[in-house]
Design a protein around this nucleic acid. Structure first.
Lengths: 308, 308
DNA sequence: TGAAATTAATGCGCAATGCGCATTAATTAT
DNA sequence: ATAATTAATGCGCATTGCGCATTAATTTCA
């Protein structure tokens, strides 16, 4: 779809609605009145709506104009902000990074990997601020690629061209159930066992969702979800409250201790994703960042595979 | 501020970044390759950033380009939606959404409000898919304002001009501690008690963070955080693992049952944020959306204030 | 009631912008 | 070394956007 109006048309429109006059709007924007008329006429043509009921003596916005006003304001402000951000971002950004480690990570690895790492570094006397960008995997990759984070811990959902992935462990997709659920009585399940259950699935577009959709296709199931969530913690809350059953990474269950939740492996096919360090290529680590990575590798090697 | 680029420039830019090639992008948009080159050059000139590192054989987006990408996508989609809406094609748009409810919400209200609501609606026989956009408060407001969600449940961090906020309950900021912590022995604490603790704070730019910074300023404390996190669940994991103590909304503690965590109210000043329903103005609710909101109001009225 | 004042719409001509075609320059692949 | 590929640039033409001048319409005022 081609857009046949531009920000200057929106600017003229807003000036007219705010001043209630074409010629005053023209003065405001340092244009001629006829240029303002033409911009508004252009907008009316493209959008197919009369925006002002006007005489040579009075200008009144239509309902359509009122509906467009808020949108136009948002669009114009967004364009202004984008211009400013693109022109100013890099200097301020670089300056703020000197005393801080920023790690982008999927939240399910906090208990398993990050907490032991932070404890180890605390015990070794390291004192540094840590900013955690706890995102979904796609956003972790984006944050690393864009240099917002020094490095990432995620699964390889979407690799960016300027990043390198170092696997640490494999994370199985498991079925999360409330204790006492009929399916909890079996040690292992297949995807067909999900047929009659109200399902809680990860959001569209995530790597986990793609894997689940694939596995269901292999099992000739259609993905009949009832609830779709962005965060594994939300899913676990809903399971805990008896709303449904969820498909989640095994590592998410480490933060579920004390909950009346159980998990079961799904076979035919078993689904797993590698989780690891994501680093931007061509950028040297600071001493602190290198120490963080080494500590994570050490902890991961020590812990071994997640138990089932 | 005059905007000297337009939606077609953004469209060309996105086509190049998505295809990784000027001439493929040109094919996609039914333009010549030289027109694509010129549009990108124009954008680079206006925004003052090189967007692609390119040879005649390879095109790579710069960091600046990755930053611009998300913004450009939003701006272009907003313009497209505006065009459709103004042409009254929104009738078809609304029709496609009738079998699904999309709710944007801060995750801390899942246990307290959403699960009881979903259970109530399940018991009343309502069968509908629910998409949960479980975001930070600013993103909830954005999702509602842009029509991505039918409504939101959030605290009033950033109100968008086309939204209406209906308060449901007040959410206190509390100190979250591991059981057995020295400060856990007191029923109530002041902000000065935090001085010697490794602090886990919400991310910059969030409403909770602003409130906390304010309260610390009032107590003549500087915000000496050690860890900064995006999600309250990450904070709770870190507290549970003994990494530090966290400042979180009271409602977050409802999902901490079974954990060896306790919370304590902070006084002088006591800090609270109203949490409620966020609705886009000028848009009528479908029957299903109205039922969801009524159920939430009913549950909230029944539950009353969060206990301390 | 008629004349004056005001203001949006339109015609005209000129400058600016955007485009495709053809060509050049650069970079890979063979 | 040559061929193939692809982004950049020159050129000319069509389209778009503008201000000035004028027209048409609508109020205001004596």
């Amino acid at each position: 779809m081609r857009i046949n109006y531009d920000f200057n048309d929106l600017e003229a429109f807003l000036a007219v609605i705010e001043t209630g006059s074409f010629h005053i709007a023209a003065e405001r924007l340092n244009l001629s009145q006829s240029a303002i008329t033409r911009r508004v006429q252009k907008l009316e043509g493209v959008l197919g709506s009369t925006l002002f009921e006007r005489t040579t003596r009075a200008v009144r916005p239509t309902l359509a104009a009122k509906r467009l006003q808020a949108r136009a304001e948002v669009m114009l402000e967004s364009a202004r902000e984008t211009t400013l951000v693109m022109r100013d971002e890099s200097v301020a950004y670089e300056h703020q990074r000197s005393a801080l480690v920023t790690i982008a990570l999927i939240p399910t690895v906090v208990t398993y990997l990050l907490s032991p790492t932070l404890r180890l570094l605390q015990e070794s006397g390291m004192s540094v601020r840590v900013r955690l960008l706890d995102h979904a995997a796609n956003e972790v990759a984006g944050a690393v690629s864009q240099g917002e984070a020094d490095f990432g811990i995620c699964s390889i959902g979407s690799l960016e061209p300027n990043t390198h992935f170092e696997p640490l462990f494999d994370d199985l997709i498991v079925l999360v159930l409330p204790d006492g659920h009929p399916l909890a009585g079996q040690d292992q399940l297949t995807w067909s066992d999900l047929k009659a259950e109200p399902l809680i699935l990860p959001a569209r577009g995530t790597g986990n969702r793609l894997l689940i959709d694939e596995a269901m296709a292999k099992s000739r199931l259609t993905a009949q979800w009832t609830y779709e969530v962005g965060r594994s913690t939300t899913a676990m809350e809903l399971v805990n409250e008896g709303i449904g059953v969820a498909l989640l990474p095994r590592s998410a269950m480490l933060s579920a201790q004390g909950r009346t939740l159980v998990f079961r492996q799904l076979l035919e096919p078993a689904v797993a994703r590698p989780v690891g360090l994501l680093t931007r290529t061509g950028v040297a680590d600071s001493t602190v960042v290198g120490a963080f990575k080494d500590a994570i590798r050490q902890i991961s090697g020590r812990l071994g595979a997640l138990s089932l």
